[in-house]
């Protein structure tokens, strides 16, 4: 039952990863007979016979129920908004799932609450292969975003920005004392005390994206942030 590629190595689409019937494919790979091949240009993770390929590329997000997303309102209907969540499908947010109560389009204009170009933090309520995703933006931490800075990152890199058990993002928050939220569809919302700290966080995130495939990243980012923050304070 040979394995042809080492753990954490980069694989290309169609690259032979392993041969043997007992390997379990978690994601990003497929099987022909007993051979396992990669589906992506990505990083291979093999742990106890289970195979996962995490793509290194891709600007799109595939909606999953329960994910937190940040979206931009691109259209308003009398009782719902159309929201771009960087997916191949436009999402729908009903006014009642935003306000927590139904809206009467005869009395109330929906654009009073959110208009085209506004940004909303929401959860995916429905996502299947047949219909476009449905959002819910009513509840704690959800709703319209009115301040702070939002940067776009490749959605596939979100797990790396969060880190194992969210260790990376916790560390960045602790060191910079900024509010940061990372959505599953690849937006990072930042609210820092000043522009310099905000810029520093952006640099850190850009570095995580660039070096997502390298080991020991959390420590490198910690060092970078602490040394640069010292410069800012002095």
């Amino acid at each position: 039952m040979p394995i042809f590629v080492k753990n954490m190595e980069i694989v290309a689409p169609g690259e032979l990863i392993a041969q043997g019937k007992n390997y379990k494919i978690v994601e990003g790979a497929y099987r022909i007979n007993d051979k396992v091949y990669s589906e992506f240009l990505g990083i291979l993770y093999i742990r106890e016979g289970s195979i996962r390929v995490v793509p290194l590329q891709g600007n799109f997000y595939m909606p999953k129920v329960g994910d937190t997303v940040i979206g931009i309102v691109i259209d308003c209907n009398p009782v719902s908004w159309t929201v771009n969540i960087r997916a191949p499908y436009l999402a729908r947010l009903d006014a009642s799932d935003f306000l927590g109560k139904p809206i009467d389009p005869n009395k109330d204009k929906i654009t009073k609450y959110m208009d085209i170009g506004d940004v909303v933090m929401a959860k995916i309520a429905v996502a299947d292969r047949v219909t476009n995703p449905q959002l819910i933006a009513h509840g704690k931490g959800l709703g319209k975003i009115t301040h702070g800075k939002i940067i776009a990152v490749p959605p596939k890199k979100v797990p790396r920005i969060l880190g194992k058990d969210r260790s990376m993002i916790k560390m960045i928050r602790d060191i910079t004392k900024a509010e940061i939220r990372v959505s599953n569809n690849g937006y990072v919302w930042i609210k820092a005390d000043n522009k310099t700290v905000e810029q520093l966080i952006i640099l850190a995130i850009q570095r995580i994206i660039r070096e997502a495939h390298l080991p020991g990243l959390t420590e490198k980012i910690r060092e970078m942030l602490s040394s640069k923050l010292k410069d800012v304070e002095s």
Partner: peptide, 11 residues
């Protein structure tokens, strides 16, 4: 296509 992160059976 691979650069766009689209899943493929191979190049």
């Amino acid at each position: 296509l691979a650069d766009a992160g689209i899943p493929m059976k191979g190049l």
